[in-house]
């Protein structure tokens, strides 16, 4: 089964596989550093998902997190 970012428990580090969705959203997420291969750590998973990526903390809406396909490292 495909693992998406919204299903990742707090404290777990995962690797981005790909980002789905419309042009603007994908562009934005990627420019903020969520490119394939990047390691992401989930900090909080209530309401919007809060992740640490490339030294920065980012909050993502759940719907958006569902579009980020990840795999366990």
């Amino acid at each position: 089964m495909v693992l998406t970012l919204d299903k990742v428990p707090v404290g777990v580090k995962v690797k981005v596989v790909s980002v789905l969705g419309g042009y603007g959203i994908v562009n934005r997420l990627m420019q903020m550093g969520l490119t394939p291969g990047t390691i992401v750590e989930v900090v909080n998973n209530m309401g919007p998902i809060i992740v640490r990526v490339r030294g920065v903390t980012i909050a993502l809406g759940r719907g958006m997190a569902r579009k980020v396909i990840v795999e366990r490292t």
């Binding site: 959203i25 934005r28 997420l29 903390t57 980012i58 909050a59 993502l60 809406g61 719907g63």
Partner: peptide, 12 residues
Amino acid sequence: KEKPELILELPP
């Protein structure tokens, strides 16, 4: 119809 999605950086 779709909900907009949040992307926001949280500085320390």
